[in-house]
Design a protein around this nucleic acid. Structure first.
Lengths: 214, 214
DNA sequence: GTCTATAGGCTGATAGAC
DNA sequence: GTCTATCAGCCTATAGAC
């Protein structure tokens, strides 16, 4: 039973929301505590520092997401039915389910991770929380695409993750380019295209020109 | 003859380098002026504010890059030889040429843009500098992929740009996942995979399953 | 666990000498 | 154009009352 403490949870929620919206450096502890409706000093009581607060925000949800993804992977891993589409879906399905179930919080969490994953400054934090899961997926991809160099598989998969994170970042670029008609936050419309894009991109980057190739 | 003033240019170079490395908010004007080997007060003399300095950094190179991309697009636009691969190459070729010609500065510039393009906070700045060029590319893509809804083309293309920007961000994720063997900065190795990924992703996201389809 | 007060330092921006 | 000095405000983090 994590986070039985209501104040601590409110601080984590507020930090997640504000870090996602404006970025780690642009948000002050004061703003976070105001959003959490608490006193400034309580940040140090629950978390040692602003950076430790960020780490707690990321860690809070990563294990749950990784558990769901591992469960998805376990169904296909090592079987003859495994495919590029299904490996992509191990990344996408659990996340989009959580967005439908619990809504805005997971959107903020994803948006924050998209920012952190882009900068070498936080690569240690991202590594700790996601590299185990990602390595399992790359292993499975390597299994079903024999004969392709590990380095090429790794590069292609990191590009695929980058495409996913670019969507989760909801930058406003779609809105801008469409004069307001296409919304970056409309995950229901974007998700199928993202899945197709990641699968098609991986297949071609790995030199599997036939759509029906595993 | 832009930037005949040496000090102004040094400030722009320093800001570009530091903003790219650490992010806009994490860099102080003092650090930039120290890196530029000048005095603090000169920032206000040449640029009105820190934000205006950022805008100047982006604008300095965007017109040159857009000119090169427009020249590439002009060769194929409206012709029967136009293809998804070539449209992707309009994005990639000019940039990677500039990296080979002038090296680190364009890498920093790209890394900075990758950060700015991810946040709604800077969507106005990105729009001003890149939306005209991007719209031309989407128009050409729409021409060679008839029957696909504009909104779907736009979404797919923004995802493709996201994949490109994720590479240009050089997050360190490849290095981390490979225990140091695959380097995010090794553009020579990544570029062909990125091109294949973007083309294959676009083709599948747009529902063109046949590789030889235009 | 909660709240107030404050330390010590850095921030963006400006005024004015040269 | 360059440089120094400085303002007013905000920052993270902590100490200590309750």
């Amino acid at each position: 039973m994590p986070d039985t403490n209501a104040t601590r949870t409110r601080i984590l929620d507020a930090a997640e929301r504000l870090f996602a919206r404006s970025g780690y450096d642009a948000v002050s502890i004061r703003e976070i505590m105001r959003e959490a409706d608490t006193q400034l000093g309580l940040m140090s009581y629950y978390f040692a520092s602003k950076e430790a607060l960020l780490e707690a925000v990321v860690a809070r949800r990563s294990s749950h997401l990784n558990d769901r993804r591992c469960a998805c992977l376990a169904i296909i891993a090592g079987t003859a039915e495994s495919s590029i589409e299904q490996i992509v879906d191990v990344l996408l399905a659990p996340f989009f389910e959580l967005v439908s179930e619990e809504g805005e919080a997971w959107k903020s969490y994803a948006k924050l991770n998209a920012q952190l994953a882009q900068s070498p400054r936080w690569s240690g934090l991202i590594k700790e929380n996601f590299d185990d899961m990602t390595t399992l997926l790359i292993d499975e991809l390597e299994r079903i695409v024999p004969g392709v160099a590990r380095a090429d598989i790794l590069r292609a998969f990191v590009i695929a993750i980058g495409a996913m994170l670019a969507v989760l970042a909801t930058s406003g670029r779609m809105r801008s380019l469409s004069n307001g008609y296409v919304l970056d936050e409309d995950f229901d419309a974007i998700r199928p295209q993202l899945g197709e894009f990641m699968s098609g991109g991986l297949r071609q980057a790995l030199g599997l020109s036939d759509r029906n190739a595993r």
